[in-house]
């Protein structure tokens, strides 16, 4: 279609059932109606086939090989997966990933619920507060991680300085499991609490007001209303938020890498090495593509499992 073709203003559109289309034009438009939809969805499927499905299947294939970038590809069946099941560092990464995820998600959801509840009121500057709390979400992860890594330094970090007022000795944030998890979870929460607040707020606003009004008439207080009306109504949204957080959380990579001075090991004893980092270590540092692919699949399976559980919960709650 030429760019300079005159537009067809919609107001000209009126039913003209008497106009008989020429047969060529008729054929063309039949073809158009029947097949052009495929052309419109084709770009997605073509690109997705090349850059999504093919690599994913290839990952599945590589996972069955001892596949080195240098050139040796030996079929080894499920050896990679067997090795993975017995790989202490893999399980360590699983533990870290889920640990950080829990440590991040629980306070994040509570915070988001709290803030959404506050914002769901009559007030001045509603838009201003929304902008403020969601601002962290627009920043790049790398930037966030760099800033927080400095705030969480052991020797000259701001966080330790503040804690010093409360009599806390300087914490080696990178040095221990709980502290590194906390620091990373803080980065995640800073970035995502505001976002989840908005989602919960939207859901809260969708709750019909007359429910609250009749509850008020029955003498239910604010707190009571929150528990017996808001929470049950929010349940599907909460599960949605948890699912999205899980998928994001299981793929955690940038924050721990930059927090750990750019090292893929995630601490001297891999205190905060996540699954994605372990995959990167095996795939891109050690160039064991086969083993890295097996890790990638394990990660995917975990995501499916967790999402599946969430889906079942949604179904149950809808019924």
């Amino acid at each position: 279609m030429s760019l300079s073709a005159p537009p067809a203003p919609p107001q000209l559109v009126k039913p003209d059932t008497h106009r008989a289309p020429s047969s060529r034009r008729f054929r063309l438009s039949r073809w158009d109606i029947k097949y052009s939809p495929y052309i419109y969805v084709a770009p997605f499927f073509i690109l997705f086939a090349v850059f999504g499905i093919y690599p994913v299947l290839q990952t599945a294939r590589m996972a069955l090989y001892d596949w080195n970038l240098i050139g040796d590809h030996t079929f080894t069946g499920l050896d990679n997966f067997t090795a993975l099941m017995g790989d202490e560092y893999f399980w360590n990464a699983v533990k870290n990933t889920f640990g950080i995820f829990l440590l991040a998600t629980v306070p994040q959801l509570l915070g988001a619920l709290f803030l959404a509840n506050l914002l769901n009121q009559n007030m001045r500057g509603r838009m201003f507060f929304r902008l403020m709390i969601v601002a962290p979400n627009v920043t790049s992860v790398a930037a966030v991680a760099i800033v927080f890594a400095v705030l969480f330094r052991r020797d000259f970090g701001l966080v330790n300085w503040v804690l010093g007022f409360f009599g806390v000795d300087a914490i080696d944030w990178k040095g221990q499991t709980w502290s590194s998890w906390t620091a990373i979870a803080t980065m995640v929460d800073w970035r995502w609490t505001g976002y989840n607040t908005l989602i919960l707020l939207a859901a809260m606003q969708a709750i019909p007001k007359d429910i609250y009004e009749s509850a008020s008439l029955d003498g239910a207080g604010k707190w009571r209303q929150f528990w017996s009306i808001t929470m049950p109504q929010l349940r599907p949204t909460l599960i949605f938020v948890v699912t999205v957080s899980t998928i994001g959380g299981l793929q955690l990579f940038t924050e721990p890498v930059i927090f750990g001075d750019g090292r893929i090991l995630g601490g001297a004893q891999r205190e905060f090495q996540t699954i994605a980092m372990y995959m990167y270590e095996k795939g891109f540092n050690d160039l064991q593509f086969g083993y890295g692919s097996a890790i990638a699949w394990a990660l995917f399976i975990m995501i499916i499992l967790v999402s599946g559980v969430n889906y079942l919960l949604i179904r149950r709650s809808v019924k």
Partner: peptide, 18 residues
């Protein structure tokens, strides 16, 4: 001083006399 080589603490340590 327990400052791991190449870490942020190590780099800061050179200036601060850690």
């Amino acid at each position: 001083a327990k400052t791991n080589t190449w870490s942020a603490e190590w780099q800061a340590g050179f200036q601060q006399g850690t």
